[in-house]
Simulated assay, not measured.
Amino acid sequence: MFNTIYINVGNLFIIRRCRDRQIQSLVAEIQGLQLKLTDGRDAVLWTRGIGDYGTTFVSTETWNQISQQTEKVLWSKTVWFPQGVPRFGFIIWLAIRDRLSTGHRSSVWGQPQHCLYCGEPDETRDHLFFACPYTFTLWLKMVGNLLGTDPDPDWNTTLSTMMTRPYDRLTFILLRLVLQATIYYLWREPNERKHHTSSKTVDQLAKMINKTVRNRITSTNYSTNPRLDGLMQ
């Protein structure tokens, strides 16, 4: 449809016959450019901002250029923090945005499902965390007195309490770890019940969550980090 465009030493374009109007328009635009030649060498520059260029590539600066900037949400620190577990953070992120494939959401696809913990016909996100008697009993066992107030089965109240109360550093780390691990195992357990005949009791699931949190704390080398000293206590 069209042939190659050649550039000679004199910066003149030697163009073979081309029938594509878009190519002809492109060539005409290139020919109209005024080139400013210098004696310096050509170099690749990376955009750092408006009118700001650098010779090195920095992924953070490039990401800030191409990403859409949005306002920081209040619950971000509840999901992402250095001591957190990425797969736990992903599940709670879906939960906060109400994107987990609960029975309520599955019913839209013609696949109604009930709560496998208590039999509630409308399995919503708010029911699982923690309006269901089973899940709320587990939450009570795991959170203990970390919240600084009586735990509430309402999902929004639980998140609001965590985001607004003035917790010390270690308590806030533990509280987020416990919340994320609890939600992760509560979300995973129904799949285990669907594919296997056995189901875990509240005490069995609590023991698994407790061990997971302890293992995560141990992996942070808390004993050698002054900012995490006392975390296991």
Rank of each mutant, 00 (worst) to 15 (best):
L140M: 11
L140G: 07
L140S: 08
K141G: 13
M142L: 13
G144P: 08
G144M: 08
G144T: 08
N145S: 15
N145T: 14
L146V: 01
L146E: 03
L146P: 01
L146T: 03
L147C: 04
G148K: 07
G148M: 07
G148A: 07
G148E: 04
T149Q: 13
T149Y: 00
T149M: 10
D150L: 11
D150N: 11
D150T: 12
P151Q: 07
P151C: 08
P151N: 05
P151T: 04
D152W: 02
P153Q: 06
D154S: 09
D154K: 03
D154G: 00
W155M: 13
W155I: 02
N156Q: 13
N156H: 13
T157V: 15
L159Q: 05
S160G: 05
S160K: 10
S160H: 13
T161F: 03
T161S: 12
T161L: 08
T161C: 14
T161R: 09
T161Y: 02
T161D: 10
M163C: 12
M163V: 10
T164D: 11
T164V: 14
T164F: 06
R165E: 02
R165V: 01
R165P: 00
P166T: 07
P166V: 04
Y167W: 08
D168I: 09
D168A: 10
R169A: 14
R169S: 15
L170R: 09
T171H: 10
F172D: 15
F172S: 15
F172K: 12
F172E: 12
F172V: 00
F172L: 12
F172M: 09
F172H: 14
I173M: 04
I173A: 03
L174E: 03
L175T: 06
R176H: 12
L177A: 06
L177W: 06
L179K: 03
L179V: 07
L179E: 05
